[in-house]
Computed example of a mutant assay.
Amino acid sequence: MGRISLEQANVLIDAAFAKGGELGLKPLTIAVLDAGGHLIALQRQDGASTHRAQIAIGKGAGALALGVSSRKIGEMALERPTFIASLGPIFPQGIVPAAGGIILVGPDGAPLGAVGVTGDTSDNDEACALAGAAAAGLKSQ
């Protein structure tokens, strides 16, 4: 199984920030996690609001924990709100049921890690995560 290097994580973050700039988004915070949910890299743009690091990590870590994007977790929360709400206290890094967290996979489809982006609308956060992953040569699930 492969891994996400620090260099790839930094390329991903830079490209995601560039996408945010291109779209004129609010300041973003981006976390890149390995397959075990451990932080590889995190950057927070100037002006990003407080606790954005925890939100970005929660989007990515929640995606890894459930094996689906944080967008899908948001959909699950509509269908089964009690279930999703019960996960926050048992997931060490939290869970954020809103788009912006995607799983990154290797050529064999196995998870390499995840990225979580927060700061603007969830759709825009996800667009930046996808743009960053593509720039780093990483596929999303």
Rank of each mutant, 00 (worst) to 15 (best):
G94V: 08
C128L: 10
I102D: 10
G119E: 04
D34L: 09
T121D: 04
L138F: 02
N124Y: 15
I90A: 00
L42V: 09
L66A: 04
A136C: 08
P27C: 02
A134W: 01
S49I: 08
D14A: 13
G116S: 03
K72W: 05
A129L: 05
G36Q: 01
R80H: 11
P89L: 11
G62E: 07
A53T: 03
K59G: 07
M76A: 00
G62C: 07
A127Y: 07
E75N: 14
I102V: 14
A85C: 00
L12S: 03
P89V: 11
A85N: 07
G116F: 10
G37W: 10
I57F: 01
K139S: 09
G2D: 13
R3T: 12
G67A: 00
F91K: 00
K72F: 08
G37F: 05
A16H: 12
I30L: 04
G62N: 06
Q43A: 08
G106C: 12
K139A: 05
A31T: 09
R44V: 05
G60Y: 00
P107W: 10
L66H: 03
A131I: 09
I55Q: 02
A65C: 13
L64W: 07
D14I: 06
V32Y: 00
V68D: 04
N10C: 00
P111K: 01
G137N: 12
G60K: 03
E126K: 12
R80A: 07
G88V: 06
P107A: 03
K139P: 02
I102Q: 11
A63H: 07
Q141V: 08
D125F: 02
G21A: 11
P92I: 14
F91W: 02
P92G: 14
I55M: 05
G24V: 01
G20Y: 09
A133S: 07
A98Q: 13
D123W: 01
N10K: 01
C128Q: 06
D34E: 00
A99S: 09
K139E: 08
Q45V: 01
D34H: 12
L33T: 06
K19H: 02
A61T: 07
L23T: 14
S49M: 12
P97G: 12
L23C: 05
K72V: 11
R44E: 06
V68N: 11
Q93T: 15
I30V: 03
E22G: 01
G37L: 07
A65I: 06
L23P: 15
G100T: 03
D108R: 05
G119D: 00
F83E: 12
I40F: 04
P89E: 07
M1T: 09
T29S: 00
G116D: 03
D46I: 12
T121G: 10
Q54T: 10
R3Q: 11
F83H: 13
C128E: 13
A9E: 03
A61Q: 06
T29P: 03
V11F: 02
A53R: 00
A35F: 13
G74I: 13
A61G: 11
K19M: 05
E79L: 14
A129Q: 09
G88Y: 06
I40C: 02
L78F: 12
H38P: 15
G47H: 08
